[in-house]
Nucleic acid binder design. Structure first.
Length: 875
RNA sequence: GGGUCUGUGGUCUAGUUGGUCAUGACGCGGCCUUUACAAGGCCGAAGUCGGCGGUUCGAACCCGCCCAGACCCA
């Protein structure tokens, strides 16, 4: 091998292999897949952010690893296209309102924008080296996909009232006045802000007046009742009293309800339709009137009389002023409040009662399936459980928007009958075409109005595992892995469980790997204003994709939030350089014949590195199976850097350069085995680097990503590891000593003597070369003065043996005469002590006597202590 | 207010059948061109393992309370 470049240049290597992979089929499953990833379909924002990079890195590590295990991996990629942000962007770019152009035309503009944005995100995915199977790409905005969304809707709507999950009803829903659409609970976020509490008097009707406190005087027109805590003594005999609503005049009754917080304001509150979810509960509970006062665009409506047309904020001010003028407003004060807001645009939501489509939430069956999924880490199940148990309202799935999957239904203009499309008719756009049936089955008329409402985009993405598994053409089988962030457990994970359970009565995925958030280098959430935001492209450009991937893997174990740190990227990049240098060294000694070397006469050092390699491969594989990418990579790095580079290479250099052919071949073969296995284990993390090395490595064919995980099992001498540890340790200690002494590392020494438990039973060839000195193996103790300097009791023996006296025993050992202890231990095999007036005896093996060697005066010898040996160095 | 998680040298991080000398990286200081590698090697300084209490012969680890932070929810 002569064509190995001096240095590793990711800037040319990475794009080269990305190009090659694009044109190959190395990531396409060959036949029926048995490891299927339910890849998140991201929303096409145009930017793949660092959080995506983390999630996709996890999936890519897993996909590449499982391919190497010989599994047929399907790692598809979808795009969750529908939704409001795209509509808003199109309106902005085209300078139009969505109603200015026909629905179909507006939709087309949204599709075009989505396509442009998808292209940009795909580029970043390629640059990160992710290994999706692009032949399995899908987009929820394509008719082939929304046919499936519609089908899933139709199937869930089938059956009688008892069976069917889908129903249409008028019910209060969360409403975003800016987006002018209903939204689900999961799309409401609570934001803390300061409000103003208004103390308002309501005149009594044939009874005394009452004072209530409210933050929302603009809702007076919608007031339909008042409530107090039944145990509130201030209002003990007043329940049932009637009052007149100031400015608006409707009469309302005082109710008692446990949910009233008596400590808030005056202890009396008004009930409006609707200020919040609590109002909805009271309204339903006490069967109150409905006085809808808000319009769909967030203004006051007809019932507000002279205030009609004012925005919520303007009405709040105006009505407060008028209350004050009329003498009803007694006081105001600031108060902390938490208001629901649209998670897409942060506009405070209102609650409107509207005719909408709903999907029933059957908590028990969702939880039953959720419990069958293996959550990684497992406490993520708790989040799903909490959310599910706390669900109060069914899922409102209709949206009054355009760019989404149409709800496949029509209304009969004569009798109002609702017709849901038949499966055979799908996909269908009911605003464009009439139903397949002609006459209304209820009244016989033939005059249909297509549903203009569209579906919540979560209806699209919540069938992703079914789409990925080829539903409905193929029978559904659970996918293997779902990877997603913990921030969307309440949405994507929840809805997917709900839908797949309802449709197939199966778990959507066997394992749910939940990743944390990625914070900036300063430990805070990434944000442009804070200036700590880093994009994947930027990081890749600065170092390399392989380095960024490693940094993400090492950020922490999956599930925990991680901090993006440049220093980790730097250190990963150095590791690649180190690996390249190892490989470069190895390449000078390997050729096409190396892999074929038969029956190599391994020396101790060779057996040692091969044993270490086997242990490493086993540990790394176990970690990878458990998605512990952090510890897998750490383990691998330690092996490569410490065992392979620092120790083994130094030990066998002499043999490789000057050994006899048989001895050289043994080292070459072991070196080849270690390098080949290491590069394959590195492949999931650093796919470009691994491919480049593998490409140069003799005896390989094709891509490293089609290679198999190293089967490194090695049966060497029983104590190969112990011998090798000793050899490596002595070599490195002597070399460190030389460095300390300011000597050249290849300075020759007169001789060294090694005293250890291994006696003379190991091989000195490599050791001798590595320290550049003749090596004499010795047994027993060196002929230099030995001075006991302390004791090292084994607490795991002494603790259980003496229980509460253990402390005293250890104290006695430490204060005893060391020379005497040593004699007892060596002669008697046990040690006797006086503790608390009683004589106790300790097994000699439980007490280590620490000793130091003192060279006899006049002799020029250095005594080095290692963990396993004492080394005398004669310079 | 409720739930979940986290707290380990300056920074980030590892660490479960509880065993005394706590892992590694980056950074910092010093020394060294050695037939793969100065993007390297060697040595060093730097830690009340958030705090308090408990269990135990022994606690970073188990239990309780408290403090701080993150996320989700109300």
């Amino acid at each position: 091998m002569t064509d190995v470049p001096d240095s590793y240049d990711p800037e040319t290597v990475e794009p080269k292999w990305q190009e090659a992979w694009r044109g190959s089929e190395v990531y396409n499953p060959d036949g029926e897949p048995d490891y299927v990833v339910d890849t998140p379909p991201p929303y096409p924002t145009g930017q793949l952010h660092i959080g995506h990079a983390l999630g996709w890195s996890y999936m890519d590590f897993a996909a590449r690893f499982h391919r190497m295990l010989g599994e047929n991996v399907l790692f598809p990629q979808g795009w969750d296209c529908h939704g409001l942000p795209t509509e808003v962007k199109v309106e902005e770019e085209q300078d139009i309102h969505r109603t200015d152009v026909p629905r179909e035309e507006f939709r087309e503009l949204c599709v075009e924008l989505s396509e442009r944005r998808i292209d940009g995100m795909k580029e970043t995915m390629h640059a990160m080296g992710f290994s999706q199977d692009w032949s399995a790409e899908y987009r929820t905005m394509d008719p082939e996909y929304w046919e499936k969304t519609q089908r899933s809707f139709v199937e869930m709507a089938e059956g009688d009232e008892e069976e069917s999950y889908v129903y249409r009803d008028e019910h209060p829903v969360n409403w975003c006045p800016r987006c002018e659409t209903a939204i689900a609970d999961a799309e409401v976020e609570n934001v803390d802000r300061e409000g103003r509490l208004h103390y308002v008097t309501f005149d009594g009707v044939d009874n005394d007046d009452i004072e209530i406190a409210t933050t929302r005087p603009e809702l007076l027109a919608a007031c339909v009742g008042m409530a107090v805590d039944p145990d509130d003594e201030r209002y003990a005999d007043r329940v049932g009293d009637t009052f007149e609503v100031p400015l608006f005049g409707q009469e309302v009754e005082l109710l008692a309800d446990d949910d009233v917080d008596g400590d808030f304001g005056t202890g009396a509150v008004m009930i409006c339709t609707f200020g919040d979810k609590q109002d909805v509960d009271w309204w339903a509970e006490h069967d109150l009137d409905l006085r809808p006062v808000f319009t769909e665009d967030g203004r006051l409506g007809e019932l507000a009389g002279e205030y009609e047309g004012l925005t919520v904020e303007a009405a709040k001010t105006t009505i407060a002023e008028d209350l004050e003028e009329a003498g009803y407003l007694n006081d105001t004060e600031p108060t902390d409040q938490s208001v629901g807001a649209c998670w897409r645009c942060d506009t405070p939501i209102e609650i409107l009662s509207k005719e909408q489509w709903f999907v029933e939430v059957r908590q028990d069956e969702i939880l039953e399936k959720a419990a069958e999924v293996e959550w990684i880490p497992d406490h993520m199940y708790d989040r799903l459980e909490d959310w599910t148990e706390g669900m109060e309202w069914d899922w409102v799935i209709s949206r009054q928007r355009v760019f989404a999957t149409p709800i496949p239904a029509w209304f009969c203009n004569d009798c109002g009958h609702v017709h849901v499309a038949d499966v055979e008719a799908l996909p269908v756009e009911p605003t464009e075409s009439d139903p397949a049936i002609e006459a209304c089955p209820e009244c016989g008329a033939d005059d249909w109005e297509g549903e203009t409402d569209v579906m919540d985009t979560w209806m699209d993405s919540s069938i992703s595992p079914m789409h990925v598994q080829g539903w409905p053409d193929a029978d559904f089988e659970p996918t293997t892995l779902r990877q997603q962030g913990h921030d969307i457990i309440r949405t994507w994970a929840f809805y997917t469980l709900l839908r797949v359970t309802a449709l197939e009565d199966e778990v959507p995925w066997e394992e749910a790997l939940i990743n944390g958030m990625v914070f900036g280098d300063d430990g805070h959430k990434m944000s442009k204003s804070r200036g700590n935001a880093v994009g994947p492209e930027e990081a890749v450009e600065e170092h390399s994709a392989d380095a960024v991937r490693q940094a993400l893997a090492l950020g922490g174990q999956p599930g925990s939030d991680i901090q993006f740190q440049w220093k980790e990227v730097t250190s990963a990049s150095r590791f690649l350089t180190k690996c390249w240098n190892i490989f470069q060294f190895a390449s000078e000694h390997l050729d096409e014949e190396t892999p074929e070397i038969g029956a190599p006469a391994y020396r101790d050092a060779d057996q040692w590195i091969l044993t270490k390699l086997a242990d490493t491969a086993e540990t790394v594989e176990a970690d990878m199976r458990e998605y512990r990418f952090d510890s897998a990579l750490r383990e691998l790095r330690e092996f490569v850097w410490e065992d392979l580079a620092d120790d083994y290479l130094e030990l066998v250099k002499g043999r490789l350069y000057e050994g006899r052919p048989g001895e050289r071949d043994a080292a070459r073969h072991a070196l080849y085995t270690a390098v080949s296995a290491s590069v394959r284990m590195l492949a999931p993390f650093a796919p470009h680097f691994a491919e480049e090395v593998y490409d140069h490595l003799p005896g390989t064919e094709g891509s490293v990503h089609a290679a198999s995980w190293p089967d490194a099992a090695f049966e060497g001498d029983e104590d190969a590891e112990a011998k090798g540890d000793l050899i490596a340790e002595v070599a490195s200690t002597v070399r460190a000593w030389k460095s300390d002494e300011g000597m050249a590392l290849n300075a020759d020494l007169d001789r060294i003597e090694v005293y250890s438990d291994q006696g003379r039973g190991y091989d000195t060839y490599d050791l001798s070369e590595a320290v550049n000195a003749p090596v004499y193996l010795e047994t027993g103790s060196p002929n230099v003065e030995l001075v006991p300097v302390g004791v090292d009791p084994d607490h795991s023996v002494i603790g259980p043996q003496f229980r509460d006296e253990a402390g005293q025993v250890v104290g006695a050992l430490e204060s005893a005469d060391l020379t005497q202890l040593k004699n007892e231990k060596e002669i008697e095999g046990e040690i006797s002590l006086e503790v608390d007036g009683e004589s106790v005896s300790i097994d000699g093996d439980a007490v280590e006597i620490e000793e130091e060697y003192r060279a006899e005066s006049g002799e020029e010898v250095e005594v080095l202590e290692t963990e396993r040996a004492t080394v005398l160095v004669f310079p």
